[in-house]
């Protein structure tokens, strides 16, 4: 029981010991590139939008994000257009041929 209590008092001490590491891990995040301040915040030699790695998703850096739905809309619509017309003329031709065959039979 006593051992357990000492173990419990140890926990805060352990956390204290660990905390500087947490601060260390967070510090580079403070120097993340800000994409519209004309300053090379993260020190990689690239300023603002030129820092493609960090700023490509920033709104005024001129890079469209995602957008597959537009692509699917255009391709889907075009395929539907081709297929729909192909189906229309194929069925029409088959109907006309069947009519002719029926007429031949009637004679």
């Amino acid at each position: 029981m006593k051992q357990l209590a000492s173990l419990l008092t140890l926990i805060p001490a352990l956390m204290m010991a660990a905390s500087p590491a947490v601060v260390m891990a967070e510090s580079p995040a403070d120097q993340r590139e800000v994409c519209d301040d004309d300053v090379d915040n993260d020190g990689d030699g690239l300023v603002d939008c030129d820092d493609i790695e960090n700023c490509s998703s920033f709104h005024t850096c001129g890079q469209i994000q995602g957008g597959w739905s537009w692509v699917i809309a255009v391709y889907g619509l075009s395929f539907a257009g081709f297929a729909g017309y192909a189906l229309y003329i194929t069925r029409g031709l088959n109907r006309a041929r069947k009519e002719e065959a029926d007429n031949d039979q009637a004679r």
């Binding site: 939008c49 709104h59 005024t60 850096c61 001129g62 890079q63 469209i64 994000q65």
Partner: peptide
Amino acid sequence: IPPEMFREGI
């Protein structure tokens, strides 16, 4: 909101 293509020099 500007279009996503909007940037310097465009």
